[in-house]
Design a protein around this nucleic acid. Structure first.
Lengths: 266, 266
DNA sequence: CTGTGTGAAAGCTTTCACAGCT
DNA sequence: AGCTGTGAAAGCTTTCACACAG
């Protein structure tokens, strides 16, 4: 795909695997809950259950951070909370801007988990002049014209895009031009960004479609081979030959726990 | 972790890799856009760019579905749209219930991409009696008491949880008991479900935390080794020795495109 | 004895690179 | 000529299972 990326052989050292990074927030949440209940220590088994993973994985994950446990005992909750927070960069506060204050943007602005762990909503931005000044979650919405100014003045480096798909790339370009280097995209579009900018995306309909896939599989297994529910089957537009057989009924689908989100570093 | 899962040796056959399944919706979206512009065929290179992946990956992915392309030419857009839709189970309509109609639930109810591709919002459910009857996105909200009835009568198998964290597990249990077998969870909690039920989760603050991690890395690289921004560093509660050194400045972080969501089949 | 930390094995996923249709 | 389909190589991730610290 065009560019080609330098394919750096990995500078080694403190390279925490991406899969592990993606689970750290999970552990952190579980640990925070324990901390609130004043639980002093926890074993890998207990913590793993609370976080919804298995203990081997958890121990391996923690081993990348260092040896923070005590053999025969477990992990010190407070200490781990601090170590993971630090590793994730949550010991500092990250100002965040949310662009696109529709239902979703409002939901994000109101989301408590935001403010609690290291993030601060620095501004809400919307293209609708009618929204300007209106407070959402206690923060007055500002107009898109102010975008660059807001980002620069607040030293914002993380932006959340909650606009309609059509506006996303444009907003993204402006965010990046203004100095944003991490973007969380809720719009159902592929964003193109320059090298060095991270984009993570959250996509409703994609998640649903993946569920539908598995749901269909389950139905197929139960009834053996429904072959294709009765009904209007749009005929293949071209006279391709079917690869070999029909939609085979098979495969006892049931993957293990898998879990690995995405980073697309530009 | 309790259960232990039968560890089936994979029944082989039509087993499409999970990573591939997770990308099919992406391809489908790109293809739908092409279809709307009446583009008849597309090469793996073009389609891959539109979907934000590389062409080798795309071809490999398609190879699991069958040989739907034409060498020297590319893929027939309409035909591929149909094949992928069918593979994902989108040729049938999936009724969906959304539980928890706050800002987020409302955003989901209003989300167009929902209705467009194979999904139909069968009902909106909320625990607040004051919401009952109030229409959101043109659909009247129903009270939680009706939950079981709604699911049974509409043959709903997919549920979306958009409640506060505290209510999520309880709602989940009721959904499952009523016959739901796929859940999309927006509440920041680990859900426990019986075997055979798929759960996918979307978690705002987790995504942000992952971004913060990478953001921190970037900052660290620029300044070489900030060692720990000045300020109150909560001292390790216990006198553990630091693993070896401070937060080493290193590792030219820059993973390849990676992308792989999660299924946690119970 | 208990539960961590970790090499080594087993599985997945991605990338390469090229044979083979059209 | 051009572009798909795919074995084989290279990377990641997860799981095993056990030495060893407390």
């Amino acid at each position: 795909m065009a560019t080609g990326r330098t394919h750096r052989p990995a500078t080694r050292s403190r390279g925490i695997p991406e899969a592990t990074v993606a689970r750290l927030p999970l552990y952190l949440r579980a640990l925070t809950a324990l901390s609130e209940r004043s639980v002093p220590t926890v074993s890998s088994e207990e913590l793993a259950t609370a976080a919804g993973v298995n203990s081997a994985k958890l121990r391996k994950d923690f081993s990348y951070l260092g040896s923070y446990g005590t053999r025969g005992v477990g992990y010190d909750v407070e200490y781990l909370v601090y170590q993971i927070s630090r590793e994730l960069g949550l010991t500092q506060d990250w100002p965040v801007v949310i662009v696109g204050i529709g239902n979703l943007g409002a939901a994000l602005a109101n989301y408590g988990g935001f403010a609690s762990r290291g993030f601060r909503v620095a501004a809400l931005i919307d293209a609708d002049p009618g929204m300007a000044g209106k407070p959402v979650a206690g923060i007055p919405v500002q107009h898109t014209d102010e975008l660059e100014k807001i980002i620069t003045e607040n030293g914002v480096s993380i932006g959340v895009i909650a606009t309609p798909a059509g506006a996303a790339q444009q907003v993204c370009d402006r965010l990046v031009a203004a100095g944003i280097t991490s973007i969380l995209n809720f719009a159902p579009t592929v964003l193109t960004v320059p090298d060095g900018v991270d984009v993570r995306k959250v996509d409703l309909s994609i998640e649903l479609q993946i569920l539908a896939f598995h749901e269909q599989r389950k139905a197929g297994e139960e009834v053996a081979a429904p072959e294709e529910a009765a009904g209007a089957v749009p005929p293949p537009p071209v006279a391709h030959r079917a690869p070999s057989a029909g939609p085979g009924a098979d495969s006892g689908r049931q993957g293990p726990d898998g879990d690995v989100p995405a980073v697309m570093p530009a």
